[in-house]
Computed example of a mutant assay.
Amino acid sequence: MGTRHDRTDDLAAVGSSVLRCALATNILWIGALKFKRYEVENDEPLLTSSPLFARLRARVGAQKLNRLIGVTEIGVGSLIAAKPLAPRASAIGSFGAVGMFLTTLSFLATTSEARQKGHGILSLSLLGQFLLKDTVLLGAALLTAVESLRAAGPRE
Rank of each mutant, 00 (worst) to 15 (best):
G2P: 15
T3M: 05
D6Y: 04
D6V: 08
D9N: 08
D9Y: 04
D9H: 10
D10C: 05
D10Y: 08
D10E: 13
L11D: 11
L11Q: 11
A13D: 11
G15H: 07
S16N: 13
S17W: 08
V18H: 05
R20I: 01
C21T: 14
C21N: 05
C21K: 12
A22R: 13
L23A: 00
L23P: 00
A24P: 06
A24K: 03
A24G: 02
N26L: 15
N26I: 13
I27M: 06
I27R: 03
L28V: 13
A32F: 12
A32M: 14
L33S: 05
L33F: 05
K34R: 13
K34I: 05
K36T: 10
Y38H: 10
E39V: 14
V40A: 15
V40K: 09
V40D: 06
E41D: 15
E41K: 11
E41I: 15
D43T: 08
S49V: 03
S49Q: 15
P51Q: 07
F53R: 10
A54R: 14
L56W: 13
R57A: 09
R59F: 08
R59P: 04
G61C: 06
G61Q: 10
G61N: 12
Q63V: 13
Q63K: 14
L65Q: 11
N66Y: 04
N66A: 15
R67C: 13
L68W: 10
L68D: 06
G70E: 06
E73F: 02
E73N: 03
I74D: 03
V76E: 00
G77P: 08
L79I: 04
I80R: 06
A82C: 09
A82F: 02
K83A: 12
P84E: 02
A86G: 03
A86D: 09
A86E: 01
R88P: 00
R88K: 10
S90H: 05
A91S: 14
A91N: 13
A91I: 07
I92G: 01
G93Q: 03
V98C: 13
V98Y: 03
G99I: 06
M100V: 12
F101V: 01
T103F: 00
L105G: 02
F107E: 02
F107I: 02
L108K: 10
R115Q: 09
Q116S: 07
Q116L: 15
K117P: 06
G118H: 06
L124C: 10
L126F: 11
L127T: 08
L127Y: 01
G128K: 05
F130A: 15
L131I: 08
L131C: 04
D134G: 03
T135R: 09
L137Q: 04
L137C: 05
L137V: 01
A141V: 00
A141F: 01
L142S: 07
L142P: 04
L142R: 07
L143F: 01
T144R: 00
T144N: 06
V146L: 08
S148N: 02
R150L: 08
R150D: 04
A151E: 00
A152K: 11
G153D: 03
R155D: 12
R155Y: 11
R155C: 11
E156M: 10
E156Y: 04
E156F: 14
